[in-house]
Simulated scan of single mutants.
Amino acid sequence: MKTYTIGRTSVSVFLGDITTWTGDIIVNAANSGLLGGKGVDGAIHSAGGPEIMEQCMEIRKEQGGCPPGNAVITGAGQLPAKHIIHTVGPIWEGGGRREEHTLAECYRNSLLLAMKVGARSIAFPNISTGIYEYPKGPACDVALKAVTNLLEEDLPDNRLERIEFICFTPENEELYVQWLEQFTQEKEAHI
């Protein structure tokens, strides 16, 4: 695990299984119907039990799902986290359909929702890089820029002490570590 500090928040990257993570909030790379699915979404629903789906169905009744880039929150069922933020990443269609903007909004809106509920820790998967086929390198760039930009805003309701990126593949882990190392080196050079 590699850890970096941005403002008062530690940002870590490691290879692992998000369903076993202990903290306040895990982020689920959901589909817009909030109906469970494959990849990380399927793993979270399977490990967390039926109460997650029941809460997702309540959200569907209230607002008809979750559009790409948006985020909603449920309990975590049987998972060790306290809550799940479900966000819907973009399906990669070559980059000409505002996928970068939508992916950045997934991270930003998830963090804002976490701050709204007073979370101190949050864990992200690599949103959209699995079955939605967003290229891993550009997805890493979007994710970390969105997170670091929001942390640099120094928002008054930000109580986040820990943000963790839980990578499913060694390739993603390496990309995130390299990006954060370069980011911190550039920050130190400007001090």
Score class of each variant (00 low, 15 high):
residue 77 G to M: 12
residue 2 K to N: 09
residue 113 L to C: 06
residue 79 L to Y: 02
residue 162 R to Q: 13
residue 110 S to L: 00
residue 190 H to T: 15
residue 188 E to W: 15
residue 148 T to L: 06
residue 7 G to Q: 07
residue 85 I to W: 00
residue 148 T to S: 12
residue 136 K to D: 11
residue 44 I to Q: 04
residue 106 C to W: 12
residue 170 P to C: 07
residue 64 G to A: 14
residue 115 M to P: 02
residue 179 W to E: 14
residue 65 G to V: 12
residue 31 N to S: 07
residue 141 D to N: 10
residue 29 A to T: 12
residue 177 V to P: 03
residue 91 I to H: 02
residue 191 I to L: 15
residue 166 I to H: 03
residue 33 G to Q: 12
residue 130 G to K: 13
residue 151 L to F: 00
residue 41 D to K: 01
residue 126 N to V: 09
residue 69 G to P: 04
residue 157 D to A: 06
residue 46 S to H: 13
residue 157 D to M: 08
residue 168 F to W: 14
residue 22 T to A: 09
residue 137 G to D: 14
residue 139 A to S: 07
residue 20 T to G: 01
residue 1 M to R: 04
residue 88 V to D: 02
residue 114 A to L: 05
residue 176 Y to P: 09
residue 173 E to G: 06
residue 176 Y to L: 08
residue 141 D to H: 10
residue 69 G to E: 07
residue 78 Q to W: 03
residue 69 G to T: 06
residue 166 I to D: 02
residue 155 L to M: 14
residue 86 H to L: 05
residue 60 R to A: 04
residue 113 L to H: 03
residue 40 V to L: 07
residue 123 A to Q: 05
residue 51 E to I: 12
residue 173 E to T: 14
residue 94 G to C: 07
residue 114 A to K: 09
residue 119 A to D: 10
residue 6 I to R: 03
residue 102 T to M: 08
residue 74 T to K: 08
residue 71 A to I: 01
residue 7 G to R: 05
residue 145 K to Y: 02
residue 146 A to C: 08
residue 57 M to W: 12
residue 165 F to S: 04
residue 126 N to F: 05
residue 105 E to K: 15
residue 7 G to M: 03
residue 73 I to P: 01
residue 75 G to D: 13
residue 93 E to K: 15
residue 155 L to W: 03
residue 148 T to D: 00
residue 63 Q to R: 15
residue 62 E to G: 08
residue 136 K to W: 01
residue 59 I to N: 05
residue 137 G to I: 11
residue 37 G to K: 06
residue 71 A to N: 04
residue 97 R to F: 06
residue 71 A to Y: 07
residue 84 I to E: 00
residue 112 L to N: 11
